[in-house]
Design a protein around this nucleic acid. Sequence first.
DNA 1: CAAATATATGAACATATATTCATATATTAG
DNA 2: CTAATATATGAATATATGTTCATATATTTG
Lengths: 118, 118
Amino acid sequence: MAKNDSCSIRLVHDDVVKRVKRKLKSEEIFVRLADTFKALDDPTRVKILYALSLNELCVCDISALLDVSESAVSHQLRVLRNMRLVKFRKEGRIVYYSLCDDHILALISQGLEHVNEK
Amino acid sequence: MAKNDSCSIRLVHDDVVKRVKRKLKSEEIFVRLADTFKALDDPTRVKILYALSLNELCVCDISALLDVSESAVSHQLRVLRNMRLVKFRKEGRIVYYSLCDDHILALISQGLEHVNEK
DNA sequence: CAAATATATGAACATATATTCATATATTAG
DNA sequence: CTAATATATGAATATATGTTCATATATTTG
């Protein structure tokens, strides 16, 4: 409202904005991308994923490993399952979780590189 | 594979848990890692970063590009600045933002690969 | 069958967060 | 100097989210 015409015409870099706009992905892609990162935005979930990159683990293992209640672990695993970040196999009563694929570890490794800089 | 070690009450794979525990990063690393991903967990911020990977842009540009108020853009840019994901240069009244380094684009690209799978 | 075990889930609560609005700061023009 | 402009920021609000607690489901064992 404030700066429709005057700002747009004089100060916005109209050509650049138009060019970049053409290269933007769809709204849906960005939402799904953000949702993927959202699955990684919690320390407990990152720990779970990192641990699973080292070994497949059952809920009970993860709970003991991270000192988080089994219920909390189960809730977090559901988030990770929904985002197709982890898969599982059942062996009797025990459910073993592991990473869906190598992208997940690649993502975390990239994040670690950024964190470790400076 | 023995399941119940004598010293644990619950059914835990004690050896595996201990081995994985030794390889875990510090609490601080995981928190910073999660914080990094948290900066990417919002559609608006992902769009901003993706746009900045195509071209440096001022606040006004981003606002027009994404149809988000300049105030909202500014708030989000602060988050990205705090996580050292974007840098800026001032030219008079105009502040031009760009990505800090190539890791950021690498991270987003990895995320896109995961999103684009099936 | 019932009891025990491993995991999953719904509800509730407390905390975190994104946007809006109003205002502040910084820079340039006149 | 004042006015205008580009961006930044604090407060408020509405929404989202993580954990806990209680309970449910599924599987094995006796």
